[in-house]
Write a protein that binds this DNA or RNA. Structure first.
Lengths: 151, 151
DNA sequence: GCTTGACTTGAACCATTGTTTAAGTTCGAT
DNA sequence: ATCGAACTTAAACAATGGTTCAAGTCAAGC
């Protein structure tokens, strides 16, 4: 009943790095941060399952969207444990980002149009117009809660 | 010939902070970074001209757009020295951000739609579809050139 | 079995965007 | 003249997202 031998070979960190395009230093960092996992050989080296490739892909895409790692980790925590995630699992996760992206796009458009208005109308009140209602468009890059999802 | 006394009073850092909503610590930091300037009293205290309010407004708006301080400083460097910037000066600066915003919005939309496609088509290739052509949508938040302007 | 490349760790470092703290000085009102 | 609030500085600390390094260990081909 056990499958013949189509056994997916595990990947070393170097192989994972090459296939994912992510430096080994970053991969170790991701593991420390709980974004990916590995088993260890008897000699204490990491061996990654192929599914980690997809996790890494998800991480990088999410980062491009501007989502901090901690939040990505939380999202990955929603994946089922024990079994390999299905397409539906990934779709559910990605749907979050899709909604978030739409919301960000809307906010950026608002900001852009406000900017145009302020310049166009000659009110010269960049400060009043644009700072009065801080839409919290993009990360306050430093500390503080990120509030990426529209709460 | 000199104006009667409608002389705009200069602002202390506390006043500037209150009016701009930016903590004094951030204002000192901005000055260190060359984003704003002040003269000093005989007792070494800062005194800010009113035009700094507008600069700060511009800084905060730009930050919300996701532009790093170094780039904002460069942009502010385009303002005329000697005279107080006119509305046209500010409009010229803001126009950069407007164009940049439009470009970011486009990229985010592309990313969002790719994401949808990948999930919808069942190709399961989040990695291939989305990582193959890194549109460089948002900041790589760490080091490295930010390439915000569409070059 | 030896060599070499790939792997291991922790710690230090980098950039960005600030805040906090300590110790002391100045301003403005009375 | 005095008092308290507001100001000054440098330096340390914080969070994010890693990279680099030193010193040593493992794995695999010959």
């Amino acid at each position: 009943m056990t499958p013949i031998s189509c056994r997916q070979r595990e990947l070393t960190i170097g192989e994972l790095s090459e296939r994912s395009g992510v430096p080994t230093s970053a991969l170790r960092f991701y593991e420390r941060e709980g974004l990916i996992h590995s088993r260890r050989t008897s000699g204490n080296q990491r061996r990654f399952g192929r599914d980690m490739l997809r996790r890494i892909a998800f991480v990088r895409v999410s980062q491009r969207v501007g989502i901090p790692l901690a939040m990505i980790r939380d999202a990955l925590g929603l994946l089922p444990e024990g079994r390999t995630p299905t397409r539906e699992d990934w779709a559910r996760l990605s749907q979050c980002w899709h909604d978030d992206l739409t919301s960000r796009i809307t906010q950026l458009e608002r900001l852009r149009d406000n900017l145009t208005d302020c310049i166009g109308c000659g009110c010269l009140s960049i400060d009043r117009c644009l700072l009065a209602n801080p839409d919290d468009v993009l990360s306050q890059r430093g500390s503080g809660p990120q509030r990426v999802f529209t709460e």
